[in-house]
Structure formats: C-alpha cells, structure tokens
C-alpha cells in the first residue's frame, strides 16, 4: 500500500496534524512528537482544523484556573501573540505551588503577629532589604497594571517571592516583615490569580473577602535605600567623602565623586587616567597632567 492510499483510507489529508498520522499508524509517542515539533514545527493560531488546540477545560482540570490565568497573562504583552507551551503552563503552576508552601512554612509563626510602622524602624539589613524590595515591587506593580503590562507585573511578583524564599527570618521583627511582604504579594496577585490569594488571605485569619480591603500603598519610608559614605582618593590621597545609596551603580558613584567641589578643584586642568572603584568601599581617581 502506498502512503497516499493509507492517508485516504484513514481520512487524512496532508494538511492535518502529523499526530493523527502517528496515531493511525499506532506509533504515537509523546516525547517523539515533542521532539519533531521542536525541530520542524511552527506556531500557528489554535484551530480545530490544525488539531493544535488546547482545551481550556482540560487545562483547568489539570492545573486549576489560577494557573491558566496566570500563565496567559505572564506569557507576553497583551497585544502580542504568544505560543502556548506545556512548559510554560507548568512554570506558572510551580510558581503558585512555591508560594503556597512558602506560606504554610511560616503560617503558624506569622498568623498571630500584627505589625505597624514602628516595628520597622530598626530593622536589620537583610529584613530592611526585603521590605524595600516588597515595596519597590508594589510601586512597580501599580505602574505596570496601569499600563496593562501584566507580564512585567507578574515577573516582579515572582522575583519578590524568590527573595522571600531566600529570606531566613530570625527575630519577631523579621517575621513581621515577612508577613507584610506576603500580604502585599497576595494583594498584587489577587487580580491575576484570585482564588489562591483569597484562600491564603483567610488562612492568615483575615476577616472578610479580600476585595473589601484597602489596596496597600507603597511605603515611602521603606523605599528609601540606605546611604553610605565613600572616601574619594585622588592619586591615593584622601581628598573627600561622598554620600551615596548602598549598592549604587558605579557610573553614578564616579559622577558624584567628580562633581564634588573639593575633587573638582584638584582636577582642574588635569586628566583622569583611571578610576578604581571598590564597591561600597572606596573610589580612587588616578590623574595626570593634561
């Protein structure tokens, strides 16, 4: 029998999905199909005729509505096409699972805690940094949502959750910071994946549905980054001290150093040959005559 006759006998056309051919031949193998799709496949609009649809109902059954929603919003800018992949949807699912376990890991400790601004006055560096990150994320989130940039909003929530996972709270203040950050995360995630947020919110012992609560504002106090003093040397001699935010970019530190009046006077008519910057520690300008 010719290939052609086999196709006709099985009501297949050359425009059909090759998965059907493998099925009819009894040779279907998911891993192999994936490989071929990776090598010669191309993304096309989901359609019945191409047999490349994903049934939303199936996806919801498998991963839940929150995962499907989160994935769809995360996969790309709203106006752009995006390619549905199983890896992608699994990634969204794993993220929600991580958030879930992070919550329950700390739930018993954080549930009875309450916090207010004064609890955050004297935080240790790591906790302070977590708090800064949480509020920075919130600030960016609000801007992104205004622009309907859901994918970037989700990306920063994910980064925040990563940071929270790496955070190892020790004292009560640390746990308060963690609790606040987790609550912010729930608020931010709620419009995108509402069910899991509502559930965790109630697990925290909160009264009333989330939607009735005020959406938090970024705390300007938390956004402030710590400033440090950096000695400025010219040809190895201490000439000035400048104040810069912790972890400031090298280019900005350099500019601030050059703009310092005491340094500028010394450099008048001279040429900066080399700049040595030791992060958060020291900057040395090597200068020579014109």
């Amino acid at each position: 029998m010719k290939v052609k006759d086999f196709l006709i006998e099985n009501k297949l056309s050359v425009g059909d999905n090759f998965r059907l051919l493998l099925e009819r031949l009894g040779l279907f193998d998911e891993a192999y199909v994936k490989k071929i799709e990776g090598v010669v496949g191309e993304p096309a609009k989901m359609s019945k005729s191409k047999g490349n649809t994903v049934d939303p109902e199936e996806a919801i059954k498998r991963y839940g509505a929150d995962t499907v929603r989160l994935y769809i919003l995360f996969a790309g800018p709203v106006e752009k096409d995006f390619e549905w992949t199983e890896e992608g949807v699994q990634g969204a699912y794993r993220f929600l699972r991580r958030l879930w376990s992070l919550f329950f890991k700390h739930l018993d400790t954080i549930k009875p805690l309450s916090y207010s601004a004064k609890d955050f006055k004297n935080l240790k560096p790591q906790a302070k940094e977590i708090r800064r990150k949480a509020h920075q994320t919130l600030k960016k989130y609000l801007e992104d949502m205004q622009e309907l940039s859901f994918n970037t909003a989700i990306a920063s929530i994910m980064e925040l959750v990563n940071a929270l996972q790496d955070f190892s709270p020790q004292e009560e203040e640390d746990y308060k910071v963690l609790k606040e950050a987790l609550e912010l995360t729930l608020f931010m995630l709620y419009p995108l994946a509402p069910h899991i947020c509502e559930e965790l919110w109630h697990r925290l012992g909160k009264e009333g549905l989330m939607i009735y609560h005020r959406f938090p504002e970024p705390d300007e106090e938390a956004l402030k980054s710590e400033e440090i003093e950096i000695p400025v040397q010219v040809n190895g001699k201490l000439r000035a001290v400048i104040r810069v935010p912790l972890d400031e970019e090298e280019e900005r530190v350099k500019r601030l150093a050059l703009e310092d009046p005491r340094v500028a006077r010394l450099l008048d008519g001279k040429q900066v040959k080399k700049v040595v910057y030791v992060k958060n520690k020291l900057i040395n300008l090597v200068v020579g005559d014109g």
Partner: peptide, 28 residues
C-alpha cells in the same frame, strides 16, 4: 485593547513526510 492570539506549535503531515524524506507515492 486588541489582544494577541494564542498560538501552538504544530507539524502537518506534509511537513513531516518532507522531514522524513518520504513522498506519498512510496510504500507504507
């Protein structure tokens, strides 16, 4: 707001046969 399409990777029978180097006239 005009949202983009949802795409999915696929391979047609035609493309697959070409990839394998088989034409329709050859034996099954």
């Amino acid at each position: 707001i005009t949202q983009g399409m949802v795409l999915k990777r696929w391979v047609s029978v035609e493309k697959y046969l070409k990839y394998l180097g088989i034409n329709e006239e050859e034996p099954l």
